[in-house]
Design a protein around this nucleic acid. Structure first.
Lengths: 198, 198
DNA sequence: CGCAGGCGGCTAACATTGTTAGCCACAGGC
DNA sequence: GCCTGTGGCTAACAATGTTAGCCGCCTGCG
């Protein structure tokens, strides 16, 4: 997944966000405390403040990392789902762009399910844009706005749909055993049909 | 909004969740601590444990309260948006049910924006169904499944869309000044168009 | 009437959290 | 050869949820 941690260049800083990520993905959000992070790399908690101003700065680094990875995943789905690429589309591809939306939705869901706690960290709070690498947010949004032909309203609606489905699934809010892929298909189909009608 | 707190009948218990709600909606989630709740009703924190087993029980009461209110709001939108009711629909009502979905979406968004912290509390965690009054969840879901004609997949997709839009808006994730009502319209239209195509 | 019991307060305390103050060792540059 | 910055450390503080243990008062009962 290449190197995605831009602002903190220090090796120690990278080690810190690495430990934070391991804790987050290995033991959940409540495990990522300053003392646990420090312990994991063999130092004491107060020393972390020589590398990051506070805990939220570490979290912001994690968020940037996740967003970059998500952007990569979406870009990969974009090329593989683009018209002209190999790999035949499964269901009716009546509308130009339908396959693209579904492919992106699938990649979005897959990333969120593969990194549930990181995804929640990324999307659960007001997002300090100043602490994010410039252009990252736009880059992550790019594939989706291209898939809907540049329609900002449609892009936001599809994003809302995908995010809502993912976060409800992660929170276990759907009835156990519900056929979520059916709901995903319904949603992707709806947005594609809407495009068909103009 | 009538009486919605079912399990804790004690006056003190109701006073406690009232204080918790005031703190939550007045000063945000981090203000609702056991000590602040107790202080607000003139007792000390440990005494709260004579009425609730732990903090999460208080939160569950809050969640039940919010879900009941949301259900009421959706039911109200359901009757006012039903065919035959007064109040002309704003935009093209080409499909039976389109107005209903839009009306429900509007009510959903309105409730969430009016009670942002309560909504986040309601929807942000795995939901301890055992601690909820029986049937509450189904009641809240009722209006939406009726609006989509009983199609469970469609209901889940629309719910995902509405929830995602709301939670992204509450988290300030959309660009400042974005035309969200446009995105909402696009989404509602998409799901209605999908129904038109079968 | 007297008494037992429990309901509902209280204080003190514990572990854990993020975070700060202040100290010290060591490396590199003038 | 000093001196300064970097990056460790210990001790401490405030606030969190929660428990233990004590006590006063009201109620029901014999």
């Amino acid at each position: 997944m290449s190197d995605v941690t831009s602002p903190p260049i220090s090796a120690r800083a990278r080690e810190i966000v690495g430990a934070a990520r391991d804790l987050l993905e290995g033991e959940g959000p409540e495990a990522v405390s300053m003392r646990r992070i420090a312990e994991r790399i063999g130092i004491k908690a107060p020393s972390l403040y020589k590398h990051f101003p506070d805990k939220s700065a570490v979290e912001n680094a994690l968020i940037a990392q996740g967003m970059a990875e998500l952007a990569e995943a979406l870009e990969a789905a974009e090329v593989s789902g683009a018209p002209g690429a190999g790999e035949g589309v499964g269901v009716a591809d009546v509308v130009r762009g339908e396959g693209a939306v579904a492919a992106l939705a699938g990649a979005y869901r897959a990333y969120a399910l593969a990194h549930p706690d990181l995804y929640r960290l990324m999307s659960g709070q007001p997002l300090d844009r100043a602490a994010l690498p410039a252009g990252l947010e736009d880059r992550a949004a790019g594939p989706l706005v291209r898939a809907v032909g540049g329609d900002a309203d449609a892009a936001r609606a599809v994003w809302g749909f995908a995010h809502g489905m993912v976060v409800l699934e992660l929170a276990g809010r759907f009835p156990p055993g519900a056929d979520l892929s059916g709901a995903w298909a319904k949603g992707c189909g709806a947005f594609s049909a809407e495009r068909a009608l103009g």
